[in-house]
Each structure stands twice: as structure tokens, then as C-alpha cells.
């Protein structure tokens, strides 16, 4: 019983701390508003990279997009270079993975 309890506690500790030891960092989401400078669709059409110029900092930020709804809009040219976008992304390794990619609301 005692051994089982110790083993269970140890497993729980490992489980909770696993992300700390994982290769992927547990990062916060970042929101930004910026104008699209460049869109590059992958040849297989399953992803795209959009380079946005952050309205606040002026820095170019590359956003990796792989959700079908946004990819459809990119392919249909409903979102094009020059559009202002409000995006939410998570850094995942070297990529900024888009969680939300919408034209600025208005009108």
C-alpha cells in the first residue's frame, strides 16, 4: 500500500512536470494587428506563411497558418497582401502558429 502510494505520487509529479521537460516550450499566445506584406502558400496547399508588419513595432512577423478556413480565404483571395489582419499566434519552436487570423473588423 505504502509502495503503491509512493509510486502514484511519483507518477503524478512526473506527469505534472512533463511539459517542463518536453522539447516544446509552453508559450503564451500573442496578439497583434498588422498589414500583410507577403503570403506564401505551400505547394501542397496545406499551409501558408504570412508576413505581417506589426502596426505597433513595425517589425515583420511571420505567421504560420494551417487551418482550413483561413487557407480557403487565402486561396480564394478573400485575404490578400495589403489587408490588415488581427491575429493571435503561439510560438512553437521557430514558427509562430496562427490560432486566429481575421481581417480587422469594421464597417
Amino acid at each position: 500500500m505504502k509502495k503503491t502510494l509512493i509510486a502514484t505520487v511519483l507518477l503524478a509529479v512526473v506527469a505534472v512536470s512533463a511539459p517542463t521537460f518536453s522539447g516544446t516550450a509552453f508559450a503564451d499566445e500573442t496578439k497583434m494587428v498588422g498589414v500583410i506584406n507577403k503570403i506564401t502558400l505551400a505547394p501542397d496547399g496545406k499551409s501558408a506563411v504570412a508576413v505581417l508588419k506589426d502596426n505597433k513595432t513595425g517589425q515583420d512577423i511571420s505567421i504560420f497558418i494551417d487551418d482550413d478556413l483561413t487557407l480557403d480565404k487565402l486561396k480564394d483571395h478573400r485575404i490578400v497582401e495589403g489587408d490588415e489582419i488581427r491575429t493571435k499566434y503561439e510560438p512553437e519552436g521557430e514558427k509562430n502558429h496562427s490560432k486566429s487570423f481575421l481581417k480587422t473588423a469594421g464597417c
Binding site: V33, N55, E84, R86, T104, A105, G106, C107
Partner: peptide
């Protein structure tokens, strides 16, 4: 005329 991103929020006035 439309003023977007009011207060850096997704709020607009048109």
C-alpha cells in the same frame, strides 16, 4: 468613414 481598432481593441465606429 470607419475608425477601427479603437483603443487597440476590435471595436469600430463608422
Amino acid at each position: 468613414a470607419t475608425w477601427s481598432n479603437i483603443g487597440d481593441e476590435p471595436i469600430w465606429f463608422s
